[in-house]
Computed example of a mutant assay.
Amino acid sequence: MGTIQIGTASWTDRTLLASGWYPASADTPEKRLAYYAGQFPVVEVDSTYYGPPAEQTSRLWAQRTPDGFTFNIKAFSLLTGHPTKVSAIYKDLRPETDKKNIYPGDLPAQAYEEVWSRFLSALDPLAEAGKLGAVLFQFPPWFGIRKSNKEYLLEVAARCRPIRPVFEFRNASWFDGANQNETLDFLRAHKLAFVGVDMPQGHKSSVPPVLAATAGLAVVRFHGHSDKWTSKDIHEKFGYEYSRQELAAWAPRLRSLAAEADTTQVFMNNCYSDYAQRNATELIELLDGVEGD
């Protein structure tokens, strides 16, 4: 069985800081990251979706964590086709527009290429330190299964190389009927890593909880089951704490997935208060139990 790494999708959320999960001595960003890295081997950086990171920030992350610690980085929204605030674009690349949000097509081709280049190069310090796990490309609900979108997955992989991208879908067409096998076979054929999710069902963005290893790395993200999934308040959207019984049902599934991959990463994305951190700890305990460790 391959390695299983369990962590959370945030370590700086204001509700986490207010929850008391961090000891009083962890009173600076540097100390909080060090404390987090002492509890978990991996973290997902979500803030990079809203604004691209600075190289100096990546360098500090690398310096402030122990050897063997891993950062996964969520791709900047513009690179996954989401609406992106003009103010989030690099200042010298911002288009002259009255729009608050723009899409890739709203940028000149050269500016779009520069966004890609700067985003990836900002991750160099993490890569050089051996602490860059993967870049998460979470696509919008309108990114359905079709030839052009499959081609974009290949384009992303080519742009990122040697950095490893992982792909999360939010459109159920990828999994409808025979499409599920088609999707997973396509990913396997090109050694593209699939991100399985646990999330509320019955919404436009809902996809089933499919787990599959399509490359050496397999990823699972737990979004919770909030009954306010469509809320614009991110804490209402993700404010769900898993019961131990719910997590126990996942343990054998995750172990089976890990038997098919070299590394399996699991991220708790129910980031409200210390829900994610406590659930991640519980899941580690449960997996230890499953493995008889």
Rank of each mutant, 00 (worst) to 15 (best):
L187G: 04
A248Q: 11
I234M: 09
N279L: 01
Y242F: 10
A276Y: 00
D233K: 01
N269I: 02
Y242G: 05
A248F: 05
H225Y: 15
H225F: 15
D274I: 09
N269H: 08
K204C: 03
E246P: 03
T214Y: 03
N179S: 09
A280T: 04
E246L: 01
A218E: 02
E285A: 15
D274Q: 13
F238I: 06
L184R: 03
S243F: 03
A249K: 13
W250G: 00
Q180Y: 04
R278L: 12
V197Q: 03
L286M: 02
A213Y: 04
P209E: 07
Q245T: 14
C271W: 00
F186R: 04
A261R: 01
N270T: 13
L283Y: 00
N179H: 12
G289C: 09
E182P: 02
R253H: 10
G224V: 06
D176K: 11
K237Q: 14
E260D: 15
E282W: 10
E246G: 01
L257N: 04
M199P: 00
S243W: 02
Q201P: 04
D198G: 00
G289V: 14
T264N: 04
A193E: 06
E182M: 04
V220F: 04
H203D: 10
D262A: 14
A213D: 07
A178Y: 04
P200E: 05
A193K: 01
G224E: 03
M268Q: 03
A215Y: 10
V219G: 00
A213K: 00
D176I: 03
E182T: 15
N269G: 07
A248H: 04
K228S: 13
C271Q: 06
S206A: 15
A215E: 07
L211I: 05
A249I: 01
A178Q: 13
M199Q: 15
A189Y: 02
L247V: 07
A178V: 03
E246T: 07
G216A: 10
E285S: 13
T214P: 08
K228C: 10
H225L: 14
R221K: 12
H203R: 11
L257W: 06
L217D: 03
V290L: 14
N269D: 09
Q201T: 08
S206R: 09
G202K: 11
G202D: 10
S243K: 08
G196K: 01
F222W: 07
N181E: 15
P200T: 06
Y240P: 06
S206Y: 08
G289I: 08
L257P: 07
W229R: 01
H223E: 05
A251D: 12
L257A: 10
A178C: 08
I234Q: 11
L217E: 03
R188Y: 01
I284H: 00
D274Y: 12
G239T: 01
T183F: 02
L184T: 05
Y242C: 12
T263Q: 09
Y275C: 06
G216Q: 11
E291W: 13
T263I: 14
K204Q: 12
Q180K: 13
T264H: 03
A212T: 01
A259L: 10
N179T: 08
P200S: 06
K191M: 01
R221V: 02
N269L: 07
Q277H: 09
T183A: 01
F186Y: 14
A248S: 14
I284K: 08
E182G: 08
Y242P: 07
H190C: 11
H225K: 12
A218Y: 00
E285K: 12
E246I: 02
N181M: 06
T281C: 11
P252I: 12
